[in-house]
Design a protein around this nucleic acid. Structure first.
Lengths: 253, 253
DNA sequence: TGGCGCAATATTGGATCCACTTTTCCGGCC
DNA sequence: GGCCGGAAAAGTGGATCCAATATTGCGCCA
């Protein structure tokens, strides 16, 4: 008997979405490159029908762009886009902290905060960062931020913050803190944020989180400016459109 | 980032998306109701292929929910969801004001602010609100808020705020200000916000906008609580049976 | 009479097929 | 030699068809 967990059924569209998202966020598919349906469908082992549905969904998520009769291509983000994403993410996560601090959180949530902070302490205890422990720290970090958004109890914040991760090389899966001092300070922020939330110090928690995220953003921006891979040069990709065809005024939504 | 269509040619998927969104936001399709593909495709005059793509896109937008092999149904929003949406929208639009005020806006943008405010003045000049003028005021109002987000120059804010409109009866197409005093005060907010942005008074502009949106939200909530149409009662809609169940007794939990 | 099981039906998921648009490529023309 | 035009090739959009899953209905049995 298969697992009876509620709605565990997975459709092939989900798999395709995940696979393509992965390729894009990982940088395997470069910005601007076309997503040929025949090619992709064969590569992923599905027909074009679920593939096209998946592409439409990813386009909704903003990772790829669509043009009628010309297909999909990987979207390219400018440095300004990344910067803007971090700015908004900082405010939203700060807002989540404010809400979480204002609420009367259940004991188990507070305990979970303690666990996550302690786990970070353990990972950093050595005084140097063992590269092998980075994935563990990264998981803890993600869990910490997710916990706050869950505690804020506002699904919109969660959804929007997740969307700001939909930027290649800017998602939380990319970890660029090879400097122990920086990561140590970052985890110190975690301490203070958890404390502030537990103590109901809403404004303090908010401001701590805003700086916490803003600084991470600045760090990333510095890296990107130093090593401006082609990924981030926003290609206008403008095209002098062909002559024929009716001009159907779209009245863009 | 859902709104990024810069193309011209319209595909049938777009039409279907727009049609279904319309039906949902207008309240024609009630929360919880199933979206039968055969039925819908015939009703809209397209085959199931583009329809299903459209449904997948709308599901990404959060207006409908999907369950594998069981299709789509219109999502129901709780009062708490609406409240949460307004709270985030208020912060985001406030943020947009802050950014807009900090920037050095081009002269034509400032001029456009003046036009919109003046238009509102004209509409309200009579001292009473002619119902026939409501659509005009609504358009002005939408344009005003859009202008601020455009001036903030952060596409994420714009995208997220638009997403908070994806709630039936809570979108900016619903206009519930039949009270002249309230609408007058609201437009007075517009005056002050435009002035603050033009003067570079970022914090003032932000706080004005937060209150501007928050109050509108409270007003809507009051209406919804007074007249709780079925639309907003969050139906648990729990599914009774999993697959190939032999034991189907209670087990409601 | 009421619940269980199995068959019949309805509905969704995915694959294939055809039509239309776009792109490429090649030859003629200036 | 380069550019324009048109035909061939490639690729996308949409419709239809088949398979798999879910839902409904009916008859059987306790």
């Amino acid at each position: 008997m298969s697992d009876m967990s509620s709605s565990a059924d997975i459709t092939s569209v989900d798999l395709v979405v995940r696979a393509i998202r992965e390729k894009i966020l990982e940088g395997e598919l470069e910005p601007g490159s076309r997503l040929q349906q025949d090619h992709l469908s064969e590569m992923l082992g599905v027909s074009r029908t679920p593939l096209r549905t998946a592409l439409a969904m990813i386009a909704q998520q903003g990772l790829i762009e669509y043009e009628a009769n010309r297909g999909y291509r990987v979207r390219s983000f400018s440095l300004a886009d990344v910067q803007a994403a971090f700015a908004v993410r900082a405010e939203l996560e700060g807002l989540a902290c404010r809400y979480a601090a204002c609420r009367r959180l259940p004991e188990e949530t507070l305990a979970r905060f303690g666990e996550l902070v302690a786990e970070g302490d353990r990972i950093l205890a050595g005084g140097v960062l063992d590269p092998a422990l980075l994935p563990a720290y990264r998981r803890m970090n993600v869990a910490f931020h997710e916990l706050i958004m869950a505690a804020a109890d506002n699904p919109w914040i969660q959804s929007f913050v997740h969307q700001t991760h939909n930027v290649p090389l800017a998602s939380d899966r990319i970890f660029l803190w090879d400097n122990f001092d920086i990561i140590y300070r970052s985890h110190d922020d975690h301490h203070r944020i958890a404390d502030a939330i537990a103590a109901g110090e809403a404004v303090r928690a908010e401001h701590l989180m805003i700086e916490h995220v803003t600084f991470a953003g600045k760090l990333l921006m510095k890296r990107l400016e130093a090593d401006p891979r082609g990924v981030f040069v926003s290609q206008p990709q403008r095209r002098a459109r062909s002559r024929n065809r009716s001009v159907r005024n779209g009245t863009a939504a």
